[in-house]
């Protein structure tokens, strides 16, 4: 890593929107390299720290796409707080598996899930204001904010995450070669 750069650690926030936490799991799969990584970064808000709301950060890693109002609010806040925002994983990049509902009417989805589905008896569509309201379609992150980098994969391999972060920390444009770029 570049010795000329100031020693200050990069502040990193991570979050999962409409994702499965698989990308975070893959992140943890960098295993003992996490220790080396922590010499260069410190975590802000993240499922790993249990800090809920991010402060000013250098880097935001976002897993998952946008399927409801809360996802959008979290993303907009992340965009405000993070200098660099990374769409991590298939869902963040193109909506992923949740976006496979996009050809369906969300009203029909809610009806089927809560009212007419097999095994349901006198159900109702939840309407508590506490619950985030679903969007009519699932969107990738770049449909709503500027995204600086894309890290594909379902999940991105741990080695790809490592490569990506070490490149970024060293001030290089991240380059993933064959084997590290995966869409599945």
């Amino acid at each position: 890593m570049n010795p000329e750069r100031p020693k200050r650690k990069l502040r990193v926030a991570t979050t999962s929107l409409a994702g499965c936490f698989g990308c975070h799991m893959s992140f943890l799969d960098i295993d003992e390299r996490l220790i080396e990584l922590l010499e260069h970064i410190e975590f802000d808000a993240s499922p790993l720290t249990d800090i809920k709301t991010p402060g000013q950060c250098d880097l935001g890693l976002i897993e998952g796409g946008l399927c409801n109002a809360e996802n959008v609010h979290v993303l907009l806040n992340m965009r405000q707080k993070c200098r660099i925002l990374v769409a991590m994983g298939a869902c963040a990049i193109n909506g992923g598996l949740p976006a496979q509902r996009n050809h369906l009417d969300i009203r029909d989805c809610l009806q089927t899930v809560y009212l007419t589905g097999v095994g349901l008896n006198r159900g109702f569509i939840p309407n508590d204001p506490e619950l985030p309201l679903p969007l009519d379609q699932v969107h990738p992150l770049h449909d709503v904010v500027k995204i600086d980098y894309f890290l594909p994969g379902c999940p991105p391999p741990a080695d790809a995450i490592w490569q990506f972060l070490t490149d970024l920390i060293a001030g290089r444009t991240p380059q993933l070669g064959h084997g590290l770029i995966h869409y599945d």
Binding site: R107, L110, N127, L133, L135, Q137
Partner: peptide, 13 residues
């Protein structure tokens, strides 16, 4: 906001 319209309709919220 419009993207929440159908779900508002379905939930009555």
């Amino acid at each position: 906001d419009a993207a929440l319209g159908p779900a508002r309709e379905a939930t009555g919220r």
